[in-house]
Simulated scan of single mutants.
Amino acid sequence: MAPRNQEREARASRQRLRDYQARQTMHSSKIARRRRDNILAIIVVILVVAAATVVQVFYFSGGPGTPSPVPSTTAASTETPAPTSTANSAQVPDPAGAEGRTWTGQMTINDIPLGIQLDGAAAPQGVANFISLSTAGFYNGLTCHRLTTSPGFGVLQCGDPNGDGSGGPGYSFGPIENAPAGDVYPAGTIAMARQGGNASSMGSQFFIVYEDTTIPSDAAGGYTVLGQVTSGLDALKSGVVDAGTKDGSTDGAPAVEVKIGSIAVQ
């Protein structure tokens, strides 16, 4: 009987060894799978961050709303890039018109009143231009033609008489003024749109930042910050931004028609 018991114990021992080896193999497989899954997760995060950065650079490579060429009486000329010279033409309002002071007022968009404040000391050329166009009624009735809705990248762009990102007041100007350090544009920022890499391509188009947004600088620098929305931003978000874009994308024409009623400053 002893040899049989020894044989049974030997078989049981071999089975236990096989079971242990199988468990070890499975355990090693799980560890390898977890390691592989962690590496894939890290790669996905890196790709998402890189894609978000590329989208921002691409979107603003032509300035918010793509290039804004100087319009003229001929349709073909709307495709002509703005001049790159830093010398402004006589048509551009004198920066002295900003008076080196803070301006306050109200802008209405879709009957939503927005309190605004402009910094004439920090951005004299941009503010003088904005005040001149506003006082002349240039902006009244113009559309806000572009909306971005990516998380952390919220911009509503307005002020193009053509309504498609190609128009302007008939002139362009520079330089870039009051661009923020770190390329961070806080919610409520009002800034000028321009062509990518062209500091002297600003005209009438501007954008309102409705949530904290980082806009990478290009070869020309950042974007001229005119001032800020001091009230009404939440109403603008609920009345315009929350409706999204017409095609459901994160960058396109607003789903609801968006028009500037008037702009008054003092």
Rank of each mutant, 00 (worst) to 15 (best):
A98C: 04
F153A: 07
Q125W: 05
D251F: 08
G239F: 00
A123N: 00
P169A: 15
A243I: 03
I112Y: 09
I43F: 04
Y210R: 09
V209R: 08
F206T: 14
G141F: 00
A22R: 13
G168I: 10
V48F: 10
V45Q: 10
Y59M: 07
E177Y: 06
A2C: 01
V127C: 01
R4M: 12
A96T: 11
P175D: 06
D37R: 14
V57R: 15
G167C: 12
D212N: 15
G167I: 06
P169M: 12
Y210L: 06
L236Q: 11
F60W: 13
G141N: 03
F207Y: 15
G154N: 05
P67G: 12
F153Q: 11
Q117C: 02
Q157V: 13
S28Y: 11
A123M: 05
S29G: 15
F130S: 03
S89E: 01
G168M: 03
P81T: 13
R101Y: 00
T135L: 08
V240W: 07
V240Y: 09
A51P: 04
R23C: 00
G137C: 07
P83C: 05
V49H: 01
R16I: 02
I208N: 12
T213M: 06
I43N: 09
T84A: 01
G239R: 04
T214A: 05
E257I: 04
G115M: 04
S172G: 02
Q195A: 15
F60D: 02
P69A: 03
E99D: 14
P69D: 02
T250S: 06
N38G: 05
R8I: 01
N178E: 04
R146P: 06
D160M: 10
I39M: 00
G221Y: 02
N5S: 10
I46S: 12
E9K: 12
N162K: 14
V229T: 12
G167M: 05
A123E: 04
V241E: 09
V49R: 05
T230N: 06
R194H: 09
N110P: 10
D242N: 15
P95R: 11
A122W: 00
A181K: 01
A136P: 04
N178K: 03
N129K: 03
T84R: 12
G126V: 12
S201A: 10
A52T: 14
D111Q: 15
S262P: 07
L118A: 11
P169H: 03
R16Q: 13
L47N: 04
G163W: 01
